[in-house]
Structures are given as structure tokens and as C-alpha cells.
Computed example of a mutant assay.
Amino acid sequence: MAPPLLSALIGRLRFKHLRLVDALARGGNLHRVAAEMHMTQPAASKILKDAELILGAPLFERRPRGMVPTEIGGFAADYAARMLRAAESFTDGMDNLKAGGFGALSIGAIMATTPGLLPRAIAELKQRRPLMTIRLLAATSDILLAALSRDEIALAVGRLTQPEDALAFHIEPLASEELWIFAAADHPLARRPAITLGETARLAWVLQPKGSPMRRLLDRTFAEQGVGSLDNCVETTSIFATLHLVREAGMIACLPKSILVEGVTSGTFSRLPIELTHDLGPLGIITRRGETPSANAADFIDVLRTMRTLPPSLA
């Protein structure tokens, strides 16, 4: 026999309840949320009361600046967001299948995979399933893991960022990455045969945001060498912006060899003679623990496995 709450969810909870809880958790203003959902405020209030009655607990607290989720409300809002994303993915995939396609697949990847592994893998997958819709989120590993935990993507090509990540995610290693610290070819440090890390601390850097694996590695390395924090910096997740700021604004940065090798070979950039004492850990296929991948996700994983030795820069 199903538990009472599960019976209530199956029998009474509707998408209108999920939409309202999700929107209210993000917006906090019942009047504005009602307008977004094209209904009156009393109607929105009734839907909220219905949801609270079904779940048996208050979901929001009214405060002077809007409505704030209770602890239970925040938990319910996370569930509502996941269910709405799943419904959107389902309808997109259904439309694609009815049109003769292969459904849809949402994946995430760190930017270091974009010069080699990822484009080849996507090209191969499109050969196998030409009408499948692929959605790609390119971001740092911490952002990808958050998206994976929210079911926004089916899998990620990246790395775990904390030891406790292994409790929620499984990683199948694909390759290791070598990191290079670099500058523009005409940067004053580019002509130096030897450079200490401390000498670069006073200069302008382009860094990934705090929390990303590469930023944490650099902060740790600077701290271990007694240099302190890098305060003169621009933070961005964009490789395109990083390369332009290094080339045109005279900044220093750190990126994987796979991204830089062509620019260094052509003379656009110069690898600085600084060795990092730590690495980022393996790059791999990350999935949620205890979950069987969909057919599309399993096919993409198979493609990645067969190509793991192909890109020399990532091998």
C-alpha cells in the first residue's frame, strides 16, 4: 500500500501546483507570479493553499519584501523545479520522436574538451542519430555538477571538485590534462628563461571564478608558496574572453595544454616557464549514482569511450 503522502501526490498534486511553487520560490511575489501565470492573485493564493493542504505543511512565509520558502517549501520547490524540467525534456523529446528524430539529450562539458574530444564525440553521435537534438552546457566542473544534481543535464564531461562529490556522482576517467601558465608572445615575461610564481602575483591575471577546480588549484599553489591571494584579476568562465584578455590586455592566465598548444605553436601565446606542483585530477564522464542512463545518454557514453584515445592533447 502506498504511503498517504505518495497517494496524495499521485492523486491530487498537479502541474499548476508545481508551476506556482517553483515560480514563487524564484520570485517571492505572489502578485507578480500570478501575472506571469495569467491568473488573478486570489486564484494563485488558492492554488498555493491547495498545495500546502496536499503536502500537509506551510510552504512559504509572508514577509514585508515578499514570500520566503520555509524549509519544507524549499524542499518542495526543488522537487517542483526538477519535475518541470523533466516535463519540458519529455515534451521536447516526444515532439522530436514524432517528427522522426531520436529525441533529445542534454549534456555538460568543461571548456577544455571543446578543441578535440567533445566536437568529435558530438559529430559521431550525430552520425548515429542525425535527428537527435543535443543541448550543450559549457561551464566549469562545479557548475556542471550543480546542473547534474538538478537533473538539468543527463551527464557531464568534467571532473569531481570535492571528495564528497563521489557520494552523489560516478566518474569514469577519460584522460588527464596538463595545465600551462601563459601570456601573449609580446609580454615582458615571455622573454624570461626563468620565472617564479611570486613574480606573477603583482600582475593582472584572468582566472576562473572561485569554486572552480582550476581556480582552487591556483589559489592553493600560491598559498603554499607564501604568495597570498591573486587580487589583481578578472574572473570569467569564457575561454574566448580569457584568450582575448591575455592577447590584447597583457594579462596572464592558466588553461589546459589542449586549448593552448595551437596558439603557442603559432607564436600568438608564450608558455611561461612555471611548473605547477598539483594537477586537476582525471577528466571523465560523470553521471548520477544509482541511475541508469537513457538510450541517448548511453550511446553518447559509448562514443566517448571509443574516442578516449583519439585526441592526443587529452591523452
Rank of each mutant, 00 (worst) to 15 (best):
G108S: 10
D151I: 04
T161L: 04
L160H: 05
G158M: 01
L155D: 03
G116Y: 09
A156W: 02
E124R: 13
I122V: 15
S149K: 11
I122F: 06
A138T: 13
I122Y: 01
I107H: 07
L155I: 05
A109T: 11
Q162M: 10
D142L: 03
E124W: 07
D151W: 10
S141W: 01
R128W: 11
G116D: 12
R129I: 09
A147C: 10
M111C: 14
Q127I: 08
R150F: 07
T133D: 14
I110T: 14
E152H: 11
G158L: 03
K126F: 04
L131M: 15
L144P: 00
A109W: 04
L155T: 04
L117D: 02
T113E: 07
A109E: 07
A138W: 02
P119S: 02
M111I: 10
A154I: 03
I107Q: 09
S141N: 04
L155A: 05
I153C: 00
A147Q: 09
P130F: 07
I143S: 12
E152D: 13
P115M: 08
R129T: 09
A139Q: 06
P119M: 11
T161F: 04
P115D: 09
S149L: 10
L137C: 09
T140E: 15
T114A: 13
R159K: 11
M132L: 15
